[in-house]
Amino acid sequence: MSRTDDQHGPLVDLGRERPQVPARARNLSPIVPRASIAGRALVAVVAIMTFLASITTGTVLLISASASEWQSEVASEITIQVRPAPGRDIDRDTAAVTEAMRAQSGIIEIRPFTKDESAKLLEPWLGSGLSLDDLPVPRVIVARVQPGTALDLAALRRRVSAASPSASVDDHRAWIERMRSMTGATVIAGIGILALVIVATIISVSFATRGAMAANRPIVEVLHFVGAGDRYIANRFLRHFLRLGLQGGVIGGGIAMLMFGFSESIAGWFSGTPVGDQFVALLGTFSLRPSGYLVLAAQAVLIAAITAWASRRTLFATLDDIE
């Protein structure tokens, strides 16, 4: 018997009594810790970025939808102003212009405003109780155009001028152009904010990936020593960061969707107030369409994919430095 046997006793072969460890048990412990402080911080950053991106996209969609409704409503109406002129009866001129408009093809509804109704249009600027008898307040006639009809504005203007020389036709083209400019500027601003959010996400993910690689550098070196390739190591990190990106995207996008879902109810609380009326005039009912929610969900998945892509690029660059 050897000295080792004298000190520790004889060796015993356990045989079948040896503890059997499943082959998959060696893979249960991930290379990158899942519940690390850096991982939670990255989830929070991705969630905040996704929330900001979703709010921006949702607001752009709301403004675009409201602007489209404004443009369709304004484009479907034509306003005629009949101004007082010396030696002419404004009531007779208004009736003559109304009859001339009824003879125009493509116009389905005509509404001449009375003197009192025309005066009420000026109350927001001049106040109520003011006598407008001595002021040259024009009469307003609103005509609704049949949708899809190409109206001959030149012929309409000639017909209106023949009925009353002091009448003028306004087809609201200037307002429509302003709405289009405002909508375009809003979309461009939204795209700019989304670009900044994506850049900030890429930078955050890159720093988080380098930090995770630095913290697990000994493990990566051992994996290299036993023959693991860069692709094998990168896939382990890639799954980790893709999972974190999906978690952050679901949290941020979900909170944004809930906010838009409850926004219509919240807007109802302020209905009838000046602030509520302004928001309704600007953003409509402040509720997204179903297609808008699909856009927000796709955006959350896109940010998660960007997170995985940024981590992959950083991973291979870091692995080259380790080697």
Rank of each mutant, 00 (worst) to 15 (best):
L282F: 10
S271T: 06
R217W: 12
R239S: 15
T285M: 10
G249C: 04
G227F: 07
R289F: 06
F262Q: 08
A281T: 15
L244Y: 11
S287A: 15
S311Y: 10
Y293F: 12
G248V: 01
G254D: 08
L238M: 10
V220A: 14
H240Q: 13
A297D: 00
V220F: 12
G229H: 13
G292P: 11
A298N: 05
G245W: 02
G268Y: 06
A281H: 13
G252Y: 03
Q247W: 13
G229A: 09
A228D: 07
P274H: 04
A212H: 07
S271R: 12
G252R: 00
W309F: 13
V226Q: 02
V275R: 02
A256T: 07
S271Q: 07
G261L: 02
I251R: 04
G227D: 04
A310T: 14
A304M: 04
A310G: 11
R231D: 11
G227V: 07
P218Y: 11
A214N: 10
G284R: 07
I255V: 13
G211M: 11
I251E: 01
R231P: 00
L282H: 03
I233S: 06
T273H: 05
V226Y: 07
L242C: 00
V295C: 01
F241V: 09
V280I: 10
M257G: 14
S311C: 15
F270D: 01
I306T: 14
M259Q: 05
F260D: 06
R239A: 15
M257F: 07
A304W: 05
S263C: 09
V222F: 12
R217A: 15
A281C: 08
M259H: 00
M213D: 02
M257T: 11
W269K: 10
G284S: 07
F270Y: 09
V222A: 11
E221N: 11
I306G: 05
L288S: 04
R243M: 15
H240I: 05
I251V: 13
I306Q: 02
A214R: 14
A215W: 08
F279D: 04
I255A: 10
L296V: 06
G261Y: 08
S311M: 08
Q278F: 15
G252P: 00
Q247S: 12
D230V: 03
Q247I: 14
A300C: 06
F286P: 01
S291M: 09
W309N: 00
A228H: 09
T285F: 09
A215P: 04
P290K: 05
M259C: 08
L246I: 10
A305M: 10
E221M: 12
F241T: 03
D277Q: 10
W309Q: 00
V280S: 09
G276M: 02
I219E: 14
L223F: 12
A298F: 08
N216Q: 15
S291C: 00
A308H: 06
G253F: 04
I306E: 05
T307H: 14
T307Y: 06
S263K: 04
R239E: 12
A234L: 13
H224E: 08
P218D: 06
G272D: 03
H224G: 14
A298T: 12
A298M: 09
R289G: 03
L302N: 06
I306K: 04
G249F: 02
A281S: 15
